[in-house]
């Protein structure tokens, strides 16, 4: 059974007013447990509106959201239960930090869940480890940290709730390559260790290519495509038309193909690129020898 199912979801901002804009238009989507889903789409295509529906921050105007087969607005007594199961990390999450120490801030979510002291402590330590937050950082004020460190503390605050579904809205915006790599590999690690599901919204095709199993492409409030990363990037022309672009390495391979070199165009990560180039070389040599 899918962990998250979206049925005929539509949402219009300023409904019935002049200047009404349709943000979501009849979205249908099913996400299988344990997948790492990348979400791409042009600015203003409805990505953020969609994910704010996942944990019940926005109530659907029409359609339903099913979490583990249960309608989040009908079958739960308290919408907070949904928010604990679907952890949502906003853009620039470091701006939500407020406690005196990082420890207390990470403990905010678990405390709201009504857990006991020991369990809270265990979860804070676990989340801190996943996010690379050191003991020293835990004891100190979050406001003394650097931007990237703050962000990791904020993400740890969500992970401490141990959500089944972790949704991240551009967690790497404004970070240097090393910081991006660190956060994404930690998220991937969390997903693989706990078997949870991750939804990652990103504008970086490289990040999506490197981490996502499945990719959701959105256009004008609709699902344009939801498929494996391979298949999505094979559709490079349409992605380019949407102004989305493709990973640099895929661009190289498309150009090679155009120049008459017989390589596949489903290449989107560097290791796979190396492999297919070696294969091509091998095949060429074979031809020569024959």
């Amino acid at each position: 059974m899918s962990i998250l199912k979206v049925e005929n979801l539509s949402y219009t901002y300023n409904e019935g007013m002049p200047g009404a804009t349709k943000a979501l238009d009849n979205i249908n989507l099913e996400i299988e447990p344990g997948t790492f889903v990348g979400v791409i789409g042009h600015t203003g295509c409805g990505k953020s509106t969609l994910i704010s529906h996942f944990n019940g921050l926005t109530k659907p105007q029409s359609g339903r959201i099913l979490l583990d087969g249960r309608d989040i607005w009908k079958d739960y007594d308290d919408i907070r239960q949904v928010r604990f199961s679907v952890g949502l990390v906003f853009q620039y999450p470091e701006y939500q930090l407020f406690e005196e120490t990082c420890y207390k801030d990470i403990a905010f979510g678990p405390k709201n869940m009504g857990l006991n002291e020991e369990e809270i402590d265990r979860r804070v330590k676990m989340a801190a480890e996943f996010c690379g937050v050191t003991e020293k950082m835990l004891a100190g004020s979050p406001f003394d940290l650097s931007g990237g460190q703050k962000r990791r503390v904020a993400i740890a605050g969500i992970i401490a709730m141990m959500p089944k579904l972790l949704v991240l809205d551009e967690p790497c915006a404004g970070l240097d390559p090393e910081g991006r790599e660190l956060i994404l590999s930690q998220v991937k690690n969390y997903q693989q260790t706990t078997g949870s599901t991750v939804i990652l919204v990103s504008h970086s095709m490289e990040d999506i290519a490197n981490y996502a199993d499945m990719v959701l492409v959105m256009e004008n409030g609709q699902v344009y495509n939801y498929d494996t990363t391979e298949n999505v990037f094979a559709d490079a022309e349409n992605l380019a038309r949407m102004g989305l672009g493709i990973p640099d390495i895929t661009k190289v391979f498309l150009k090679l193909k155009e120049m008459g070199v017989d390589v596949g165009t489903d290449v989107y990560t560097i290791p796979y690129a190396v492999k297919s180039l070696l294969k091509y070389k091998e095949a060429k040599r074979g031809e020569k020898n024959a």
């Binding site: 704010s52 944990n55 921050l57 907070r80 928010r83 604990f84 952890g87 949502l88 906003f90 999450p93 701006y95 939500q96 905010f108 979510g109 709201n112 869940m113 605050g157 969500i158 709730m161």
Partner: peptide, 16 residues
């Protein structure tokens, strides 16, 4: 706008 964003972020962490 900022207040709304922060409220949403804290609500996501189960703030009442």
């Amino acid at each position: 706008e900022e207040t709304e964003k922060i409220m949403n972020a804290q609500k996501s962490r189960g703030a009442l």
